[in-house]
């Protein structure tokens, strides 16, 4: 089964690969945005800690 045949998927290539692409995009974008959100939260925590330290030193 040559590559071009495989991609053509019996004439339904766009549909099959379109769906695969959609699933891939969603299943990559969701974890990435979660990771980002996680980093932002950790930074917020660090900032809170720094503010508390400064508060106590004075």
């Amino acid at each position: 089964m040559s590559i071009s045949e495989f991609l053509a998927m019996g004439g339904y290539g766009y549909y099959v690969w379109g769906i695969m692409l959609l699933a891939l995009v969603i299943m990559v974008f969701e974890p990435m945005s979660l990771k980002q959100q996680h980093q932002r939260l950790l930074q917020r925590i660090k900032r809170n800690n720094r503010l508390q330290q400064k508060g106590r030193k004075r």
Binding site: E30, H38, L42, N48
Partner: peptide, 26 residues
């Protein structure tokens, strides 16, 4: 996997000013 990741984010958000979260980033 994604649900557990999101749950961790929710936990952090809701427990942002607790002691153990503050220790977390140490």
């Amino acid at each position: 996997a994604t649900i557990l990741m999101r749950v961790r984010n929710i936990i952090l958000e809701r427990e942002i000013n607790t002691q153990w979260v503050a220790q977390l980033s140490k």
